[in-house]
Nucleic acid binder design. Structure first.
Lengths: 155, 155
DNA sequence: CTTAAACTCTTGATAAAGTCAACGATTAAG
DNA sequence: CTTAATCGTTGACTTTATCAAGAGTTTAAG
């Protein structure tokens, strides 16, 4: 009776000392997997997923992103942006506008109702973030935000 | 001529002040996207991907994980572990052993050559991590590791 | 001005990853 | 012994990722 089945907590604990558990790559992968699952649940009542939420957020940011810029900032292929914007546009949440300066590009902007939905969605993701970081102090949370953004945007 | 095309650096800079860029959820998603792309390139010469590398790493950890435990720790479905282990086993890098205490479970352990390959792979991922965190001081790197592991394993 | 090259969005094909239900073998509970 | 639960596995299915090519637009060169 050396190795008992092991509950969730037990299993995790056994591998905490493994080399893998110390790798940033693994830690971010696991964090984002858990976080995105939680965020998707919270966004479900609004008929949004993390992806569509991210697009909506940038569309409502006042920065007037083009689809190309959305793809780059979200680490997606430009062809993946198309159906995301299609869906949001079909719901009247965002608008495609030809960029006057370069009619190849299409600027994505949030509509009135898009901004209203984003406002609700933002509260949902903020709640998810609060749950995720509950174990950290406010100072630690800001430290984490700062360190992560420095490696997410290095260049 | 207000909005010029915008290079990569330019685009990112424009959205740094957006609400989205301040969300942990987004920062971890972007970090892991960039990190896993870089890690996959570095692991390619060894015919490994981040996924198979993670399984190999735990198989060589001395913790004798079952497939169920691998799935849970790696945030994967148990059915996704099967082809990963199949592949590693086919290359003679790991072994499936029936757990004597519970013959339903199969313990995955690294072979001699599995450990040799893991040793090389570990150096590759360590190099990738060094590149990713180049902008942080040693102290900051350890702080990030600590904060991330606390939210990746809260419970 | 004209032509060629480069860029943006879009489509479509294909591969990879994620989700879920069900099955045989095994173990645990009653 | 019977029933329920667990583990690995398979298969079907959906979603996401990757890539090439095309139509329209802009830029640069000649």
């Amino acid at each position: 009776m050396a190795t008992k089945p092991g509950t969730t907590m037990n299993t995790i604990h056994r591998f905490l000392s493994s080399e893998l558990a110390g790798e940033i790559e693994f830690l971010t992968a696991r964090t984002r997997s858990l976080g995105s699952a939680r965020a998707n649940k919270l966004l479900e009542p609004l008929d949004l997923k993390v992806r569509s939420y991210s697009v909506l957020s940038l569309a409502c940011s006042g920065q007037a992103p083009t689809q190309r810029e959305l793809a780059e900032f979200l680490s997606l292929d430009p062809s993946q942006i198309v159906p995301l914007v299609d869906q949001l546009e079909g719901r009247g949440l965002v608008e495609r506008t030809a960029d006057p300066n370069d009619r190849r590009s299409k600027v994505i902007t949030g509509t009135r109702s898009g901004e209203q939905l984003y406002s609700k969605a933002r509260k949902a993701t903020a709640e998810g973030e609060a749950v995720a970081m509950a174990k950290l102090s406010k100072v630690e949370q800001e430290t984490l935000r700062d360190l992560l953004s420095r490696i997410a945007f290095r260049d």
